[in-house]
Amino acid sequence: MKVMVCLKQVPDAGEGEAFLQQVGEEVQVACDDWVLNEWDGFAVEAAVHLIEEHGGESMAVSIGDEAVEGVLRRALAMGVDQAWRLQPDSNSADDSMRLAHSLMGAALTWKPDLIICGAMASDSGNGLVPGILAGKLQWPFVALATGLKWDGKSFLVRHEIHQGMESLEKIGAPLVVSAQSGLNQPRYVSIRGIRRVAKREIPMKNMADLSLSPLQNHVELVDLKRRFPPSGAHAEILQGSPQEQISQVIQRMREQGVFTS
């Protein structure tokens, strides 16, 4: 079995919003600390696990400049067999259609049986790339997988549908799946793993390497500015010492008829 995972590096958000900076009228993302998108971690773990269990080969791909080698190396250290860095489309680095186009090139060149992506990226929150990729490849797509098995002939995918329900489905290869939290617990990156892959060259593939022609006639959405949402618009924020706040909240709850006395 051949499994390809698609990775994205995202700003290390941590807690707070220090990486988001107000510059004039807009908010800019200022970050030099990149990490693997949380959902992509589930995707890597799933790929490595499937290959450990059934044999075959796994590959991680990420689109971007040299900086993305960080997340690719992380995937290698976790046990992915190969990694490719894909050269971004010079027109626009983060347009979902263009990203999917490059990934399609990688898929048609490497010919995986399964592609796993994270359900979405924690920065954009879009969740578009995996589905667009599937649509372009004309492969079936299942989003939000919480279980993924191979029964020797088909994949058994458990995934989230409406209202807290999940469905279990059987789907043949090739297929695109997006990983939801709860799919697995990604393994740690081990020191031996880091060492093992430290000297590995990560090849860069451009459009020609992937036999891709540039995307024609694609109209992009025009990226305008970011701003902070109006905050605390609704709530009455209680003031004073903790003890005073508590008395007030009890008062409010009483007004709402929460307490009878």
Partner: peptide, 18 residues
């Protein structure tokens, strides 16, 4: 989350999410 991007991928129409 499944349906929309697949439509975009098949048709080539750009997608806007959420």
């Amino acid at each position: 989350l499944e349906l929309l991007p697949v439509l975009s991928g098949i048709t080539g129409f750009p997608a806007f999410s959420d």
